[in-house]
Write a protein that binds this DNA or RNA. Structure first.
Lengths: 335, 335
DNA sequence: CTGAAAGCGCTTACAG
DNA sequence: CTGAAAGCGCTTACAG
């Protein structure tokens, strides 16, 4: 598979490689005769020339490659944001290399190294627990990085952040006003800040609320989400739940929990009300329209790429954190 | 962000770049003193050396980059197979560049060109309608390509193929034996071969069947799947469907159809039975366990990468088509 | 208006 | 056991 090069064009067109390069890159300033230009472009087309970005990258230090590290590309949330990122990246001429960390710090670090070797111009990452060191290493080297979805407190890195605490408070306040007897928070037993923030918002809202309401936290590990949610939810709800609200802190938790409700014929919102963080197509198959917290995926992707692009092009060198607001989509799942 | 190079190591260690290259690449044959080796490795570590694969690629003609073009990475099927491909690719030292064609031949071609420029060693693609020409161009250049999910008849390209016709026949035969009064096939109005094959299998099975059963095809465009499925399904089922089976030819169609059933309180399998091609998390939230046709995603990914890798490394140059079998997962949604 | 030449960071056949 | 040198495909400051 011998690809044709600028040299071939030069030879055929009877000019120097420099001239070819100037014409193909449409550099102004160098005034090259229309005739020469036309001939070069013609030749390039007939031999089906495809520029080698690697070679250009070597010279320029710009690969036009961006690395994206998510926890798992097969997860709805990440695959949807990946799509938006891809579109936006393409607009600016970047291609996206994708990797899934699987919540594993070692894998995360390996991906960072691999992507560095591939000379990506910058990275968009969803950091995992224990990834502080590898991230710090990148930042020290002045490598353009922006975090999405998650954030590591105390690390001075650019990031697109969701107002997790606030939206959790807003959502909880809304539930509190409905006078449920019980409100159960279903979240992860984790060290990930963005998830802890969702819990923090819930708890602070509860504690500020005067009237008495039974609250409870169900926390599950990230390995066995579905099973754990189902058994713990079963224990908590018992045979006859009434006037109870469930607040799930991720779509994965929600799907597991809703599957439990279905299986046990617990009606929503008659028996229990439901509010969930994030959406997923799966909600469409639940008998009741689920109320959920919607993240502005498109905006997040836009901001992430914009920040990265300006760091890459040195428009700005300082870490920039952008906080975006989620919105509460209220539907039938709340009494 | 000045990255350190082999030259820096050579300078600090007091050896030539050639020696550094030999040591770092662990080339045997060149016997280099243990002492020199140790020193070079030490220096590389302390200055945090990261090899520049671009430079190597320029020399070697191997980028260790693979292009993946799917219809839409945010679609469950593609994001799941992407994850498997990613894992397998990583095992062989490849990174994956991902692009979504959005079923658009122009976008598809653009991605192919972009990925070529990035010097990917090979591509895994799900071709779209009208992409024959761009694919042919690649193949002429001897570019390693393997198709997944979809196939273009008459083009001699490697591919991992599902036995769409056979599994559709098997599934239809199964439904026929259940003596439904009506069986409705819900599919796409498309030119994509793999989808037509699913329909073909259905139809051939029906026509071979002696007893009389009412059958019907509902075909929808790919733009407005959900709406179209719902209105057409509504027309077909009417107020009181009975002893009817629905056979959806993709998970997206199934989700749309099941959402309709839910909304209209049509019970599965009491009123209608359901069988669907492909799975999705969404089934978990449907009151009845859905019977579906399961594609061997992991095997598909393994085969795709294996074929590609051997084409890249010239183990084999000829187009290789591999057909894998889907399996029928029978659950409660069929009476 | 155009070209010769250096150089980006590597690899590798060859020489010693 | 080790190094000098050519070359991969580009870009670009410089010279003419």
């Amino acid at each position: 598979m011998k690809r044709s090069s600028i040299k071939d064009i030069a030879r055929i067109a009877g000019v120097s490689v420099a001239t070819v390069s100037y014409v193909l890159n449409k550099k102004e300033g160098q005034r090259i005769s229309e005739e020469t230009k036309k001939k070069i472009i013609e030749v390039a087309e007939t031999i089906n020339y495809i520029p080698n970005r690697n070679a250009r990258s070597l010279k320029n230090n710009k690969s036009k490659l961006l690395g994206l590290i998510v926890a798992d590309i097969s997860n709805d949330f990440y695959s949807h944001i990946a799509r938006k990122l891809e579109d936006k990246a393409l607009q600016l001429g970047y291609s996206l290399i994708i990797g899934s960390s699987g919540e594993n710090a070692t894998k995360f670090e390996k991906l960072i190294e691999l992507f560095s070797q591939q000379q990506v111009d910058g990275m968009i990452v969803a950091p995992v627990v224990g990834s502080e060191a590898s991230l710090l290493k990148l930042i020290e080297k002045n490598y353009p990085v922006v975090t999405i979805d998650r954030y590591l407190k105390g690390i001075n890195v650019s990031g697109v952040i969701l107002n997790n605490i606030e939206i959790a408070e807003t959502a909880t306040d809304f539930l509190l006003k409905k006078n449920f007897d019980r409100i159960i928070y279903i979240g992860y037993d984790t060290k990930l800040e963005h998830l802890l923030d969702r819990q923090k918002g819930f708890e602070s809202s509860i504690s500020e609320f005067g009237a008495d309401v039974l609250t409870e936290n169900i926390l599950v590990g990230i390995e066995n989400v579905a099973e754990e949610v189902q058994t713990k939810l079963g224990d908590a709800l018992g045979k006859k739940p009434k006037n109870t609200a469930l607040y799930f802190s991720s779509n994965k938790l929600a799907v597991a929990g809703l599957a439990y409700l279905i299986k046990n014929k617990i009606s929503v919102p008659q028996d229990v009300s439901v509010l969930a963080f994030d959406e997923t197509e799966a909600y469409q198959l639940f008998p009741t329209k689920i109320s959920y917290i919607k993240q502005p995926l498109e905006e997040m992707a836009d901001e992430a790429i914009t920040i990265l692009d300006s760091q890459i092009n040195q428009y700005s060198r300082t870490a920039k954190k952008i906080t975006l607001s989620a919105s509460l989509i209220l539907q039938n799942s709340i009494k």
